[in-house]
Amino acid sequence: MMECLDTIADYGLRSIGIGERLLPRENFTLCQQFTLIGSGMLWNIYFGVLSLLAGFFLATAVALGKAARNPVLRKSSEWFIFIFRGSPLFIQFFFAYFLFLALKGQYPFFDPFTAAWLGALLVLFLNTSAYTGEIFYGALQSIPKGDIEAADAYGLSGWSRFRRVIWPTMLRLAWPAYTNEAIFLFHSTTLVYFSGFPAWQQKGDALYYASYFADKTFNPFVPYPILAGYFILLTLVIITLMGRIGARLNRHLPQEAKRTRFRFRPQLIR
């Protein structure tokens, strides 16, 4: 038990370069596997949370763009969504890394972009914006006509109509599908080091450490289920948090109506 605490002290923050420099080499213990894979989860959470937060705003813009009358705005939003939703993330990572390398050669500004913390974050951000944008667009289309008519009757227009009526209703309708998107996004963060970006100084995400152990112990049946366990926990946390926010978004509705609204998971899971 004491030993395990030591291990946690040594490796708990290894994924961000704090603690023991060398990874364990032999006599791998379960504690080491739990600690290091858990330490790698920090990166998965970092990628997931930041791209989800930033993606939320771009997604709103993209959804409005796709619904806009202006053809330039509409077409560019449609293409943005199509490209990022239509191709595997795996290939997006490949092209992004390649592009950043080429740009880096030309402009020193792009230096940090070939590192995962920025480059992969950017790709994940654009990717989730496209998926979320499509979800929001679908929700925007299904806002009950009556809501907008009522807003008009109250004399709301322009920005205040959007902020007070359209936007909250859109979020409310999109929330269940958006929850699914959030889950998927966290799952896709495992692709970052697996096939997209290089790992520096053995600082990687949970999957990086899981495959390190699988490779060193020649036994895939321990590290990968540990990784799976962490992700199931993470998924539960996401569902709980998103459920809380969703309940808040729906707090003005009568209880019964709330249940019917949430009963069906509509349209666009990713």
Binding site: S195, W200, Q202, K216
Partner: peptide, 24 residues
């Protein structure tokens, strides 16, 4: 120094304390 992920070469570079970058 670049090496393939998880190879003995990658382990050696880490042991030496050199700057390691791993590719798939």
């Amino acid at each position: 120094i670049a090496a393939q992920t998880g190879t003995i070469q990658a382990g050696y570079i880490a042991d030496q304390g050199w700057t390691l970058v791993e590719f798939a």
